[in-house]
Amino acid sequence: MSRSPIDDGRTMGENKLRVLVAKPGLDGHDRGAKVICRALRDAGYEVVYTGLRRTPEEIVSAAIQEDVDVIGLSILSGAHNVLFPKILDLLKDQDAGDITVIAGGIIPEKDIPGLKEAGIGEIFLPGTSTKDIVEWIEANVRNI
């Protein structure tokens, strides 16, 4: 399967944050992921979207290859407790633990503390404004 970088209009020397929007898990619900892609692009970020049903390995390798600052995981299938920690572990194994990982989708509140402890920066639930996501990235990624 091929991965298609969406936005290759990068201008060298510009301090544009690079974000990989990724869909792990088997579900095909990509409305949220694609709306986020557009909103982040409109906020001035370089955005790369992986497409559907990517394995943790594919996501991590794309993140490293694209040299991103942030990975945004979107999942609605319920497999987050298995797949998120796997992605975080793989990032650490490949010395890419500095990439901030955030997530959104259908994630029960009781799962959130465990996922944050594992290293997910923030989890955005249904109803989140795209502005809130941009503000979070500005505060937690840009300003480090």
Binding site: G25, L26, R53, T55, S77, G78, A79, H80, N81, V82, L83
Partner: peptide, 8 residues
């Protein structure tokens, strides 16, 4: 690819 998805 079914890892974590069974019965969910």
């Amino acid at each position: 690819l079914a890892l974590g998805e069974v019965g969910k």
